[in-house]
């Protein structure tokens, strides 16, 4: 086969080969019938646009997958979500504003998508309500910062502690320290007040310290 039709299978082969990192699944969408309408208009040669996108996919898959996994707490769901996120990113690529870092843009799509999923799980209205114990009472003394535990290359322990947190703490923590968003951006995304976000982050970290130190004690006593 020659001529213009040939470009579609070639593109697909191109996707397949794009994932040189074995742990990143090869990019296998969109279906050929969808490729042409989505080609980014700003780039003259559609093939180049696709090449760019394959690069974006390869570079950002891990970040997106990681975010989805933290938020959705399941590798299976995260894999599905990451695919969907890149599908959306591909579709909206024309809207991308080059003044913003690309990673923030893709992570933004991913955050919105995951939070939508969490909302649809039906806990939305009460998701971020604080109980009286957790309410803003900054003077109550929690545990001191566990910098030494965190610094001691115990990323696995931290991630497990994170996974054990309720969603209301987990989501802001992930947005703040994984996506590295500011309080205002998080507040926007979750539809909360800025002070509410600050409290959730503060309480979330305190809970994490509690979980980590109890793990630590267990570890020591064993």
């Amino acid at each position: 086969m020659t001529g213009t039709e040939a470009s579609v299978p070639e593109l697909i082969l191109h996707y397949k080969n794009s994932g040189t990192d074995a742990s990143v699944p090869p990019l296998k969408f969109p279906p050929p019938s969808l490729v042409l309408p989505y080609m980014v208009p700003s780039v003259d040669n559609p093939k180049h646009a696709e090449q760019d996108f394959a690069d974006i996919y390869r570079t950002h898959y891990r970040r997106v997958f990681g975010l989805c996994r933290y938020l959705l707490n399941s590798a299976d769901a995260a894999e599905d979500a990451a695919h969907e996120v890149f599908l959306r990113a591909h579709r909206k690529f024309g809207d991308y504003d080059a003044s913003q870092p690309l990673s923030s843009w893709v992570l933004g799509i991913a955050s919105h998508y995951c939070i939508d999923i969490l909302r649809r799980r039906g806990v939305e209205t009460r998701l971020f309500v604080l109980t009286s114990v957790e309410d803003v009472d900054p003077s109550s003394h929690g545990l001191s910062p566990l910098s030494e535990v965190l610094a001691a290359e115990r990323g696995g322990a931290v991630r497990r502690a994170l996974a054990a947190l309720p969603d209301k703490f987990l989501i802001p923590l992930v947005l703040a320290y994984y996506n590295e968003l500011g309080y205002d951006e998080i507040a926007d995304m979750l539809g909360l007040k800025r002070t509410h976000v600050a409290t959730l982050l503060f309480r979330g970290k305190q809970q994490m310290r509690r979980i980590l130190s109890s793990q630590e004690n267990k570890h020591v006593s064993e």
């Binding site: 910062p145 965190l150 931290v158 994170l162 992930v174 994984y178």
Partner: peptide, 11 residues
């Protein structure tokens, strides 16, 4: 330090 460690651990 905790913040930085948290970012590292998460990422």
């Amino acid at each position: 330090q905790e913040n930085r460690a948290l970012v590292l651990a998460l990422q």
